[in-house]
Design a protein around this nucleic acid. Structure first.
Lengths: 200, 200
DNA sequence: ATAATAAGACCAACCGGTCGGTTTCTGGGT
DNA sequence: ACCCAGAAACCGACCGGTTGGTCTTATTAT
């Protein structure tokens, strides 16, 4: 195997193992040794690729941010009406949720670590603000295309974002309690309706 | 001083110091020694009153649950109309938020520890379900008194709860970014309005 | 007196990170 | 084709420091 290939392989194994373990047991509880063991990699290799345990965490966080941007870009290319676009987004979340519900768990870890680490805090705030901006943009487009009626799109976007975050949180905390994916779809549909949805 | 008085005093000092430290730095980062130091109490006293570090955490969580029940009971005694009651609740949250915004931080810690500790998980889920039930009950009362019009009070309560949780979360993560207390009031007012609020 | 409460020295376990040494890859000289 | 030297990747024993929890001793209230 090529050297760079091998290096990338090791790096991504570490990241995957760390993501899994952070999501399942939490950042502090997870030891570097356990990550190495799960990744099938030595401690030397770990510290060859990352300067510290914390740097793996922020690398994971940045990967999420990058993925987020990709999602936003993909969501805006379609020519759908806003209510349909929102419904499609909700369906997407629902699908991801059913495929890998534990995927969201690490979000809670990011949030919890925000208080301790300023760099993490910046990234999580950035993440939330991007969502806010994205939602507001979507709602504004809905108004201008006539499919929605909202007086204050900023406030409406805040409501929408808060509802999504709250549902995500509940889904993480009580995964068996409800079908949160489906609930997300229904709640967003209800919101669209209350915002004066008009079929286009 | 009486013996029981002294004992209670020590116990509550430990709880207060632990709550502060857990909220500010997180559960794992906070050491028992630091709690003892902050409380002005020895380690012997600590382990005389609590069997473990974790037990302090769940004691704190249970105190929150008890406080919650008190709030709910108090909120239901008034003869206000539902929209007014919700507005009053929002104002209450706003006030608490301005007085002690860091008070909410420990919530995030409770949530984050849910994955690791089943007992914490049960309590947090319990907490959220109580809120859901409470909100639904309030909305149903609004419907029966004619101040609100909602087709599906269960779904509406979910939306309301999710929005509140989401706003709380954002307030914890980005305390300087917005006046989250005021935003909570505006968002809830918007929700009430969209649920067909009628002045009584 | 004696039982409850508090004190703090102490311990075994663990953790993040280091370091000297080994293996694997690459590219150029022959 | 072969070899070799240097670099990159990897290994895992080891270290200093910290942690949750214990235990013996001292103080205080009844």
């Amino acid at each position: 195997m090529k050297q760079e290939e091998r290096s990338q392989e090791t790096r991504s194994r570490i990241l995957a193992a760390a993501e899994q373990s952070f999501a399942e047991h939490g950042y502090d509880v997870t030891s570097v040794d356990s990550i190495c063991h799960a990744a099938g990699v030595s401690k030397g290799a770990f510290y060859h690729h990352f300067p510290s345990k914390g740097s793996v965490f922020v690398a994971l966080l940045n990967a999420w941010l990058a993925e987020l941007d990709r999602q936003f870009a993909a969501a805006q290319t379609g020519g759908e009406s806003v209510p349909r676009q929102v419904a499609a987004m909700a369906a997407g979340v629902n699908e991801i949720y059913h495929v890998a519900g534990t995927k969201w768990n690490i979000l809670l870890e990011f949030w919890a670590k925000s208080k301790a680490d300023p760099e993490v805090a910046r990234s999580t705030v950035e993440m939330i603000r991007r969502y806010q901006g994205f939602f507001q943009q979507v709602l504004d487009r809905g108004v201008s295309e006539g499919s929605l009626q909202v007086k204050n799109s900023n406030l409406a976007a805040t409501l929408m974002l808060s509802a999504v975050l709250g549902l995500l949180l509940q889904g993480i905390l009580d995964p068996e309690g409800q079908d949160w994916g489906a609930l997300m779809q229904r709640v967003l549909a209800m919101l669209m309706e209350s915002m004066g949805e008009r079929k286009l």
